[in-house]
Amino acid sequence: MTEKPLLQINNLETFYGPIMAIRGVSLEVHKGRVVTVLGANGAGKTTLLKTISGIMDPEKGEILFDGQPIQGLEPHKVVRAGIVHVPEGREVFPLLTVAENLSLGAYTRTDAAEIARDRDLVFSYFPILAERRAQEAGTLSGGQQQMLAIGRGLMLRPKIMLLDEPSLGLSPILTQEIFAILKRLNRDEGVTMMVVEQNAAVALDLADDGYVMELGRIVMSGTADKLAASDDIKSFYLGHSNEGARGERRWKRKKTWR
């Protein structure tokens, strides 16, 4: 890949007061690809996405989008640049209808005809949203709200979509379903994605490339296939091991990247 990355992050550091949540993260997302960032609770995944989307300002480092620095910009300027953040825990507008939620996704756009076309596109990927378009978003099921949050993000027609744990709180079947839709969106519509996940199995299946984050640092990176084949990922994120008889001693095993 000689082409310049769509999103490039260099040595990013973000703090909550004295707490350093992002400790010098660097990563790249190329156009048309899906990149996943894996990590356990508290690794700093959400903080990383919030720093990209301008909800939080980094202390150090740079975020280049299409070659332009965007770190520290106000969130609405980041959105206008073409970055949409689908937050952890859906965060829909509970008293507004599904249709109104979707139209707010296109808040920064003015091309009415194109917006209508994109809404039809969202409805074709998530037929349940078309069916429930007049229902208040707060009364949707958790899975439907996740679909709405993704659909609302698509309404921006983003250059890149940042997804924060889309599998959170969903049944395995619904998780599969949503990740299958994400895969189609990437393949058929060419949507570039950065997906933060704890569910490494589905995330690595979807992604082209991956990073592993721990305590605010990137500790491993590579193609999704390479990561999926790695022993560390297998035992600590995919939840199965090839250790057989040693299985009961697994808790003692040291991660090799430490």
Binding site: S53, I55, E74, H76, V78, V84, E91, V92, P94, T108
Partner: peptide
């Protein structure tokens, strides 16, 4: 209704 989500939508 949801200030954080409003930021995410690019609403100033």
């Amino acid at each position: 209704q949801n200030q954080m989500a409003a930021y995410y939508m690019g609403i100033p």
